[in-house]
Amino acid sequence: MSIIKVNCINETCPVPLVETRKALRKAAEGDTIEVQGTHSSSKKEIPMAVESMGYELKSIEENDDYWTIKIQK
């Protein structure tokens, strides 16, 4: 089980979701995907998409510069 990091800092919609989908497609069962970004709409729509796909949303963290969404496949 590995951790796959996806850097979407300064990318805007729909790129973060496209990159998340790409990472989810390549990940193995049990892998964790960590998406980092700055676009506020993406922070809302990635969890929405993850939920609809039936994957586990582990956390959404935010600091002054970017947010991090952790997903378990």
Partner: peptide, 9 residues
Amino acid sequence: SITLHMDMR
């Protein structure tokens, strides 16, 4: 966005 979310479903 619609087609992306629909694809993921």
